[in-house]
């Protein structure tokens, strides 16, 4: 009796095993973002930017954030320290020395990159983040529970949290002026920029335009468009005159940031087969051991 059932049991277990491996190899790792061909983006040309920080003012004004008057932004002393976007400023401009031409420092505008395969969207426990058809990655205050996993996940260290807010802290980050573009307006920062260092347009066109610029002015740019492939591509892309890593851009690979974790997650949960198989397996072991004890009345 015992032997019989054990053989049956092993057979079932083996079957279940093949089912697991078969299924999990079929599950795909890629995040299933349906990316619109017409999604928008911004091309930031750091060789054009003059560091006037008008975009910082425009961004704050457009998002009802507290801001000093626009004249106050002429103060270039802020460039002494490297700043990061936080809950009170969704975008900041930093300045770097230009070793070739001291007179023209390099200014880099920083904000959310609006990744094509955003880690924040994949990570958020309640799905408060979403990638919109027009390319923006936006955050839903009605869902967020304030766990800050999005901040752990973002490869660009962008989402900021209102740590000082005890009642209803928000996650703050550039929303690509989602409310403005919905009404047909330009993102506030691209609208105000006096030198067109930030250009709004279809991402595909912008990538082409960027490569055209590199081709036309090979002395001006290094041959790389940051954001074209980084972490699977971002909606905001950058041109620069020197290595991006020297301008404090993070060193990143080409694979989408959420790829590995989603592959593991979906492997473990492939159609709930592995958990159910494990359940069956343990149930079988339990049953066999119980019966064995009954019939043989001794320990293994």
């Amino acid at each position: 009796m015992v032997n019989q059932s054990r053989r049956d049991f092993l057979k079932t277990a083996a079957l279940a095993g093949t089912a697991i491996t078969g299924l999990s190899s079929k599950t795909k790792a890629a995040p299933k973002n349906i990316l619109s061909e017409d999604r928008m983006g911004v091309l930031v040309d750091t060789t054009v930017c003059i560091g006037c920080r008008k975009c910082e003012w425009a961004c704050k004004t457009a998002h009802d954030l507290e801001t000093p008057s626009i004249e106050a932004y002429d103060d270039r002393n802020v460039f002494k320290t490297m700043r990061r976007p936080n809950s009170k400023s969704l975008t900041v401009v930093n300045e770097y020395k230009n070793s070739v031409e001291e007179k023209f420092p390099i200014n880099v505008k920083v904000q959310c990159m609006h990744c094509d395969h955003p880690a924040c969207v994949s990570a958020c426990i309640v799905g408060a983040f979403s990638k919109q058809e027009n390319g923006s990655v936006i955050w839903d205050t009605d869902k967020c529970i304030g766990c800050r996993y999005c901040m752990v996940a973002c490869p660009f260290q962008v989402p900021a949290f209102e740590f000082e807010n005890a009642l209803k802290p928000d996650i703050k980050k550039c929303d690509f002026c989602f409310e403005r573009t919905k009404e047909g307006k330009l993102p506030a920062c691209t609208e105000i920029c006096p030198v067109e260092a930030v250009t709004y347009g279809r991402r595909e066109d912008l990538v082409k335009a960027a490569h055209q610029k590199i081709k036309n002015y090979p002395d001006r740019y290094i041959n790389r468009v940051f954001g074209e492939y980084e972490v699977g591509g971002t909606s905001w892309i950058y041109l620069a005159s020197r290595e991006f890593e020297k301008l404090d851009f993070p060193k990143l690979g080409k694979d989408p940031a959420p790829g590995v974790s989603e592959a593991i997650q979906h492997g473990v949960f492939a159609y709930f087969v592995p958990p159910v198989a494990l359940y069956a397996l343990l149930g079988g072991v339990m049953w066999i051991n119980k019966n064995k004890k009954k019939s043989e009345n001794e320990e293994i």
Binding site: P31, V121, S122, A123, C124, I125, V126, G127, A128, K143, C144, I145, G146, C147, R148, Y149, F161, E162, N165, K168, P169, P258, S261, E262, I264, Q265, F269
Partner: peptide, 23 residues
């Protein structure tokens, strides 16, 4: 540790199967 601890029930009705934290 949750910034909005009173929303702790959200994951029960707002699912994100891609999120490891959710699981």
């Amino acid at each position: 540790d949750l910034g909005r601890y009173y929303y702790i029930w959200h994951p029960f009705i707002m699912w994100n199967g891609n999120s490891v934290l959710f699981e």
